[in-house]
Design a protein around this nucleic acid. Structure first.
Lengths: 258, 258
DNA sequence: GAGTAGAGGACGTCTAGACGAGTTGCAACG
DNA sequence: CGTTGCAACTCGTCTAGACGTCCTCTACTC
């Protein structure tokens, strides 16, 4: 592998030059996903710098999410994550009537092994933003369903649904298994025919807790999608707050020009 | 400000404990946005650690995007960014007919000072993914319009539009000023009435170049939105590749339940 | 009073070394 | 032949110090 040398006259500090060398080796394809980078000791020798300087170069690539360090083994070029593409018609009624929860059906079709765990169901007071979206009064309670989605045993999303308690109480929504078609099918069973959803999409770095639950490496952001479901009467019936590992997703939306 | 002490018996390394102290001081509100953190020297004295240890704690918060270091001044709790909310009807014809480019009109209304700079217009062969989206042949050329958007003099987005060259050549699309209603109005002038758009949304860490153009601090991800515009004949007429500073945006989409 | 030079404080980067802990492969042992 | 234990290599963290650049404030000069 071609690494070049440091130019001490260059305005850029040595650690950045080393990072640039490694980055372009990756971009050129000299280092492929899964390949090990030169060890810190090798970089130290090759460039004649202190170990901390070599480490800082690697740190730069880590924070860009391009490489992953594994204690005792080495630093590796990040493997591209298998991507889930979320189409804009993923909540179409036809999928719901097919009789399987959205995630399981879709993943199975895409050839990955889906799973859901860490299912927790609760009743509590909603966070302020959820209360506002559901247009609830000060002391209204909500049903809270949280769960984690995995694809091929790798966690890719944590989701929390909030529903006005009167809508959920006494239905399978409060059970671990919500039955065929999931929450939305149960809402329609109860007469709340769904009309449309509004999704609000943002991205940020994960909190420490999210990094743990999603098993995220350094330098991996999350996509946050907050979806509000409205019935045909225009009443918001569910808010679903999802945090997704960003590299694992492409969200697709269809927008009419009207 | 209450900082506590390091517990050397604790399994967690000192640098992480210091980071936790600072993080909870921010969460508690002891440190408000814009406040200066204790300097490295102060942390070094308070915790009796080496300066590199204090630095590493700060580095952790930087990579989470919670604080911003300013050379010669100090480390500050990040100010919440002014947020642009992109509604799902932002490409509705009514806005176009109002006769102002989408971004300028909307920003002005939101009370921020908008600007566009770094406008570059070119003709070239398209990248592979763009060629595919526009359904072009191997050696077709495209018009390329790239520009940078600023709000209150802070860069928040860089965008590059690709159009089949025959559609753009000879129109104001190849001029710096595309005229009232922007690119989309010019396409409709030319008989390509717009029918719908498809947006693909992902998030990732910025490249070094993007970090510079968007003046992003460490630990700030970008939202990437690739929009394809289709005319009423179902022909893709434009691909717009946008890279947005994530903290500055909320994308909103309306999805019919169908 | 305005302008300027300098000191000091702040972060940026590097050096050289130490110990710890996870991983792996090989060699010796049973 | 299988197992075990150790050595070597890897990254993780910390220490203690150096020098550089940038920013701010103060005190001095004109």
């Amino acid at each position: 592998m071609q690494l070049g040398d440091i130019n001490r006259q260059d305005g850029r500090p040595p650690s950045r030059q080393i990072a640039d060398h490694l980055r372009s080796a990756i971009d050129r394809g000299d280092l492929l996903p899964g390949d090990r980078l030169p060890s810190e000791a090798e970089l130290t020798r090759h460039y004649s710098v202190a170990r901390m300087t070599a480490r800082q170069a690697i740190q730069e690539l880590r924070s860009e999410g391009r490489v992953v360090a594994e204690h005792g083994r080495g630093v590796f070029v990040r493997m591209p994550a298998p991507v889930r593409r979320l189409a804009s018609d993923r909540f179409a009624r036809k999928h719901r009537e097919a009789g399987q929860a959205a995630f399981l059906a879709e993943a199975e079709k895409a050839g990955v092994h889906p799973a859901v765990d860490q299912i927790e169901i609760d009743r509590s007071a909603p966070p302020a933003d959820v209360r506002e979206r559901l247009r609830l009064a000060e002391d209204d309670q909500v049903a809270v369903r949280s769960r984690r989605y995995l694809a091929d045993d790798r966690p890719i999303e944590v989701a929390t649904s909030f529903l006005p308690l009167p809508l959920a109480e006494g239905t399978a929504i409060m059970e671990a298994d919500t039955g065929p078609g999931g929450i939305y099918a149960r809402l329609e069973d109860a007469g709340h025919v769904l009309d449309h959803f509004v999704e609000e999409v943002t991205a940020r770095m994960p909190t420490a807790d999210e990094r743990r639950r999603l098993e995220l490496a350094d330098g991996v952001p999350v996509l946050v999608v907050v979806r509000t479901a409205y019935d045909t009467a225009g009443v918001p019936v569910e808010v679903c707050d999802t945090v997704k590992a960003a590299p694992a997703y492409v969200l697709e939306y269809d927008i009419p020009a009207r």
